[in-house]
Design a protein around this nucleic acid. Structure first.
Lengths: 207, 207
DNA sequence: GGCCGCTTACTGAATATTCAATCAGTATGG
DNA sequence: CCATACTGATTGAATATTCAGTAAGCGGCC
């Protein structure tokens, strides 16, 4: 846990470097133990410099949340040349991989911890609502495409997208909070059953 | 937020009272802001008394986690006289209600925040793994019953239970972290589609 | 009954540590 | 020479935890 994720392995700006340090401190100590001191320890420059770039801890952490959400967003592929069913499959493969390497594990844990803050912090909630909305729209458009292409049934794209979003959220959380990888592999397998039976058009109820 | 939940409205022992105070402090300040001082503020007796009943903050919070998990467990119904499909439906109605009152909202938020700690604290992870296992077994037995009764297809009970567990986890998290109630109502509706098409036996692919 | 000794529940003040944040001051580069 | 990047020392508040001491219940025992 706490490995350098590839996306910021060599930060170019000081602010990026601070985001990097914050990430490492979060992985090591958890959100509740995330202090300016500990961020400073992971930071190659001095602790006081943090206050030169951010007004206070609050602003730093909110920036960090945005930073992480952007990173997460950019990890979901946006293929366009494939069919809708293949695009959906590709998304689910990225969102529900059978295992995670240490790096991905740390990132996922960080995301789960950050997300939980939204339960009592409205600004975090707003950030997540925005982020979830973008992801939702992405899913909706893939499903709509599938319906137009005739590979998906005439389902309610919004409803299906919420369903899949909930599922991927749950899998992400579960994996790093006691569920283990097997909870995700089983979920992934059953999602396929769902897609085949509920979503996919074709010879109705094809066994 | 921070209403007294019915399950500990009038604590009988001092330790129960401390759990109550901890719950209120968690609702008000979040896990990261959960200090002994603030627990003491919600507690009718003195702050130092906390150390008479618990070795340190760590032990208090771990006890609190167990306490909350037990409460959560007891909120899921265990009907026996109904058919398996009705029992499953009843469980999902409890786990994915269309809305939450303020009390339930606070409880859910607290559970989500606590759970996230498991991402970097192994003891929390162990507690959750145990809790999740019990819930999983409960689901499995309902599904197995359904298969025996002939109301469910011959699915893999373990896989389906993981799927539904992931789903309910995700819904719980999502609702209080920016998804809102509509994400859950949509999910609930689509779970019905899943149950009808994938799980339920009978006139195959019944529209 | 009434006093004793022991345990348990409880308190308020005090401790050392850690926290976020400030600030005066030093480089450095255009 | 001015702005920006940066540092080390420092402040005061908040932190977890301790501790000496009070109050109250309780079983025995003269």
């Amino acid at each position: 846990m706490g490995e350098t994720p590839p996306f910021l392995s060599d930060p170019e700006t000081t602010r990026e470097s601070i985001m990097h340090a914050t990430y490492l401190a979060l992985c090591e100590h958890g959100y509740a133990g995330l202090t300016i001191q500990r961020i400073g320890e992971q930071f190659e420059k001095s602790k006081s410099l943090l206050y030169h770039h951010y007004d206070d801890k609050d602003e730093l952490l909110l920036s960090f949340l945005q930073f992480m959400l952007e990173e997460h967003q950019s990890s979901v592929p946006e293929t366009v040349d494939d069919g809708a069913d293949e695009r959906l499959d590709a998304m689910l493969d990225v969102l529900l991989p059978p295992t995670l390497d240490e790096e991905e594990q740390g990132f996922t844990a960080a995301m789960v911890e950050l997300r939980a803050q939204a339960a009592h912090d409205q600004r975090y909630r707003e950030q997540y609502a925005e982020h979830a909305h973008a992801f939702h729209e992405h899913l909706v458009s893939v499903i709509e495409d599938g319906i137009e292409e005739g590979v998906f049934r005439d389902v309610d794209p919004d409803q299906v997208a919420q369903f899949l979003g909930t599922l991927t959220n749950g899998a992400m959380t579960r994996r790093v909070t006691g569920g283990g990888d097997e909870s995700v592999t089983a979920t992934r397998a059953e999602v396929n059953a769902y897609i085949d039976r509920v979503l996919r058009a074709g010879t109705e109820g094809g066994e």
